[in-house]
Each structure stands twice: as C-alpha cells, then as structure tokens.
Design a protein around this nucleic acid. Structure first.
Lengths: 218, 218
DNA sequence: ACCTGAACACCGTTCAAGT
DNA sequence: ACCTGAACACCGTTCAAGT
C-alpha cells in the first residue's frame, strides 16, 4: 500500500482512539499493535506521528487535563478565591473520575504536558491576584493537585470496578456483595474528598489571614 | 537441576530483590526474566511463589507501607490527634520518597495489602479514640492517604531524577540547569506538602470543634 | 514441592523498501 | 511524507518433565 495521497493518521485521531481504548479496556489494553489495528493501520505507522508509546499516553492524559473547567478563575467573575478553588477541585476531580484508567499517567511525572501546565498557571495566576505571595501561590497549585490526583487514584472502588467483567453472575454468587463494597467505597471516596477539600480550603483561609495581616508590600 | 533439596527461593527473597531492583532501576526494569536472573534462577520459578508479576509488585509496595512509623498513635503516648496526624503524614511521605518508583503501584487500587490496611486501621482507630465519629474517622484516613500519595507521586522533581543517568556531563552542558530545576522543584514539593498538611490539619481542627460542640452520644 | 527448558502468544521499536 | 512487512530483542505465563 505504502503512502496514501491523503494521510490515514493524525496525532488527534491517534490520541482520540487511544483515549477511547484506555477508557473502555484500561491501560493494559493499549499496545502499539492493538491501537494501530483499531486505527486500521499497521503498528509502525504510529511512529510517524509520535516518538514512542509513552508520548501517546502522555497526549491522552493531557487531553483529559484539557477538559478541566477553569472558568471559575476568570477575572471578571468576581468570586472569592476560596469558592473558585473549591469549584476548580470539583471540576478537576470530575474530569479524572470520568477517565480513571489514565489517572496513573496523569498523576505522575514532570509537567511537560501543555494542558497540565495551563491548569497550573491559571491557578497560580488566580491565587496571586487574590493576594497570595507567589511562593504560597505555587504551593497552593501543587498541593491542590496532590490532593485531587491522589483522591482520583487512591480510590478503593476502582479495584472492584476493574474486575467487573470477571464477575460472571453464574459463577460468582457474591457479585452483589462486591458491588455493594464498591458502592460503599465510592461514597467513602466522595465523602473523604469533600471533607478534605473543605479542610484544605479552611486551613488555607487561616493562613491567608496571617499573610494579609503581615503584608510585605501592598 | 530440577528441585534442590533446599528451596532456592522464598517470597521474602523475591520481594527483597524485586524491591532493590525497583529502587535502583525503576519499575520498567522489573521483568520476570530479569528478576529471576538477579535471583540466580530461571523465569518460571517465580510462579511457584507468586501467582503473577503484579502480585510481586504488590508485595514490594506493601513492604514499603510496612516501613511507615505508626508509633505516634500509641495509646499511652498522650499526644493530641493533630500532632499525631502530622507526624504520621511526615513519616508516610518519607517512606514513599525513599522508594519513589514503587509509589504508582502503592498509590493505586484496592487495599488488599496487609500493611497498607494496617496503616488505615491504625489511623481510623486513633481518630475514633480522639473523639471523631466513625464516619469522619474513615474520611480522615482516606483523605490523608490521598494527599500523601498524591504528593509523593505528583512531584515534578522525579522527572529529572529519573533521567539522571542520561545526563552525561560530557554530552550535556545543561546538566547543571537540569539539576537546579530538580532541586528547585524538590523545594516546591516539600513546601507544598508542608503548607497543605498544615492547612488540612487546621481545617480538620475547625471541623472537630463543630463536631464536639454538637455531640450525639458522649 | 520446586526448579527447568521449551513453547505460545504477545510486546515496543527500527529499518529498508515502497509510493 | 507516510505507510508497509520483516526483523530484533524482548515480554508474561503455561506446562510437561525432572528430582
């Protein structure tokens, strides 16, 4: 066949198909050969568009970061930083839990991914505008990311959800129990996220008062 | 050769060797064949002691959880829950950052690992003893884990540290820069962890007052 | 019970060859 | 520039065979 007059592949199409595959069957289902087959193409073709498989998964992770709503940090939207931070965390977590299998990739490593960096920059900028010193604003961006990704990654529930296909009702009379466990754990995860997020923001508000009370320049 | 009169392998020896390999060369370096070679044995031998490779990595992760100091939760040690929680978080993070490559395994999935469960149970018990309602105590255990594992996993610094061997000074004049970046990011990570941990505990203390002020039974 | 070599069905990636 | 098949050096895991 060799080269067609119109390219069969594009980075976007590869990322979209890889993302769908990750969502449907998990990270383990993504091999270059399998992904290529899904795209109607042979394995090595991918290397015309990405340097290696990791770069593809990074792009999938970044496409999830791109879905995080950041509008609560818009300047004209005169919300206080606590509310904005809260809404941001909820939006971020929603994006991650919608694509749980890619979270291990997203939660890790250096922030060379553009959408991931844009999220960090937006939070940083908003905190500085709200009156936080730059060093503290950096910390806030990082610690919010820790908590959000940690909560999306550390859930017990996923352990059962992942096994869902293995629970054939004919073979496993305890299926119901497993689902109950998963449901209970999902409530725990949501409650813990809620409790932790409120604590985090309340605690930061306390530090904010101290910082404001002893200003350096303004 | 076949079966020796004294077993060549044991679960402990496999876990120790696998852990050393993960620490030295990362998760990617662990293949059953490589690990077996390191143990002076052939690949399939491992399957006499573990069901599969994932079980080996789970055991490595659990051996790290086992290193978390929990003595601050001892009953006789009449410390208040805030201090204990703080010390616990610092100890937990130290255990993780000492073995950064296994954190993705540890941070994930269901808590079927005994040491991991013991940590969770200890925190839960201590919070209940301190006067938290059980539901809240569960949340506190989970949210602390989210924050700690997220901070150990989400560090920018590791991205550079991992590449360290690739930075041959002869080839890379910017090595110094990369190290500076890594060092700066390490300080950011530590600062963010510290700030977040204080905020978390301060915020929980606020919720504690509310809970205590409206008791249900005591 | 515990180890072995052979074998199966895969991998990620490179590369020369095609258009 | 972009795709292909062939090839390389690997994988995880199963299994019959050995003691």
């Amino acid at each position: 066949m060799a080269r067609p007059r119109k390219p069969l592949l594009s980075r976007d199409r590869i990322v979209a198909t890889a993302g769908a595959l990750v969502d449907a069957e998990g990270l383990g289902a993504v091999s270059t050969r399998r992904l290529a087959a899904e795209l109607g193409v042979s394995g090595p073709s991918l290397y015309n568009h990405f340097r290696n498989k990791d770069e593809i998964l990074d792009a999938v992770a970044d496409s999830v970061s791109a879905q995080v709503d950041l509008s609560m940090f818009d300047e004209d939207d005169a919300r206080d930083w606590r509310t904005a931070l809260y809404d941001y965390a909820v939006s971020y977590r929603a994006a991650l839990t919608a694509h749980p299998h890619i979270v291990p990739v997203l939660a890790q490593g250096p922030g060379r991914r553009p959408a991931g960096l844009r999220v960090a920059d937006t939070v940083f900028g908003a905190m500085v505008r709200a009156g936080w010193p730059p060093a503290q604003a950096t910390h806030i961006g990082a610690l919010m990311r820790y908590f959000i990704t940690g909560s999306a990654l550390g859930s017990f529930a996923r352990g059962f959800v992942d096994d869902e296909t293995a629970y054939d009702p004919a073979d496993y009379p305890h299926l119901g129990q497993a689902h109950l466990l998963a449901e209970r754990q999902q409530r725990v995860d949501e409650g813990a996220f809620e409790t932790g997020l409120r604590a985090l923001i309340d605690g930061l508000a306390g530090q904010y008062e101290t910082v404001r009370a002893t200003p350096k320049s303004s």
